[in-house]
Amino acid sequence: MSMETDNPLGTFLRDRRSRMDPVAFGFGGGRRRTPGLRREEVAQRANISPTWYTWLEQGRGGAPSADVLNRLAAGLMLTEPEREHLFILGLGRPPEATYKTSGEVTPRLQRVLDAMPFSPAIIKTATWDVVAWNAAAAMVLTDYGKLPREQRNILRLMFTNPGMKAAQEDWRSVARYVVGSFRADAARAGAGAEIATLVEELSRLSPEFESLWRDNYVAGHADGLKRLHHPEHGLLELEFSALAVDGRPELGVIIYNPATPETAGRIQSLMMRRADPSPAD
């Protein structure tokens, strides 16, 4: 079996150090047998024992700790995807999540939403703040653009907005599912501290939320069926799918597709009215 197959962690470390310029990091250039940093130089940058680093490259000494891998990632100036790959090779899992979000969505992501004219779609953070939406979402779900930024939160709307509550066919079941999915998303993203204030606020404002939160129910949020009562077009049946955003683990996309021909027709009617709001003669 080749060394690359037998010790992929060592192969990855050797490859990354071979790409680094010694002079740029204050090490003498001179004549070197191989390109990049020496093992002892990587160990120095990562503040670990040169012997331990050598063993890692040679596949000896057992699995490294998460702390050692984080030091190596910093010393080798790995990108976030490279750091995640390092953890998977070294420990068989990604690094523990550390929540961070700018709340900004690129124009490219917005264009993805806008390319679905009859499928409501939103982008939310792990704390369920809605940070982007398309025109169909504004017509069918909520016109987030008319809300203050701090009010564009799915949990806050679900438990404090009477119109949102009235639109749900079985509000209690939907609310339980939403709270369980929210709990799972926040924990997965390492956002426990970030949701504390929202949880405290909603527990104070809504006895229903407080009861559901104390229940500790956890749910997935991959896909399902949503039934909404639109004030003008009646029942809308929507299939939803939750998708991740590559490179932005703190964001998720939810797309709602019409589940029946009747719903598709009603959404198209809504969107046509939006495009031509003038009353008929």
Rank of each mutant, 00 (worst) to 15 (best):
P107H: 09
S119Q: 08
A115L: 09
T106S: 15
Q110N: 13
A126Q: 00
P120Y: 00
T125Q: 03
A121T: 05
T127D: 06
I122N: 03
G103C: 08
T127E: 05
Y99P: 01
E104M: 10
E104W: 04
V112P: 05
V112M: 09
R111I: 10
K100Q: 12
I123D: 02
A126Y: 01
R108F: 11
T125M: 02
T98Y: 01
S119N: 09
F118W: 06
I122E: 02
F118V: 14
K124N: 15
V105G: 10
M116W: 08
I123V: 15
V112A: 11
D114S: 04
P107C: 07
G103Q: 10
L113G: 05
T101N: 12
S119Y: 02
E104S: 10
Y99R: 00
V105H: 12
A115N: 08
P107D: 08
G103F: 11
T125V: 03
P117T: 13
P107M: 11
A115D: 11
T101D: 14
T101K: 14
P107R: 06
V112Y: 00
L113M: 05
T125S: 04
A126H: 00
V105F: 12
R111D: 13
R111P: 06
T106V: 04
V112K: 01
D114R: 01
A121P: 05
R108Q: 13
P120N: 02
Y99F: 11
I123T: 08
V105M: 12
S119K: 04
S102I: 02
T106D: 10
G103L: 09
K100E: 12
Q110T: 14
Q110K: 14
T98M: 04
V105N: 12
K124I: 07
S102F: 03
T98S: 07
T125E: 02
P117Y: 12
P107A: 07
A115Q: 08
K124H: 15
T101S: 15
S119R: 03
I122T: 08
K100H: 13
T106G: 09
V112T: 12
A126M: 01
M116S: 05
L109W: 07
R111A: 15
S102R: 09
I123E: 05
Y99N: 00
G103A: 09
A115P: 04
T101Q: 13
T125N: 02
E104N: 11
T127Y: 06
T125Y: 01
K100V: 11
R108C: 06
S119P: 04
D114C: 04
R111M: 15
T125D: 01
Y99H: 06
K124S: 14
M116N: 03
E104Q: 14
Q110G: 08
R111Q: 15
Y99W: 06
L109A: 08
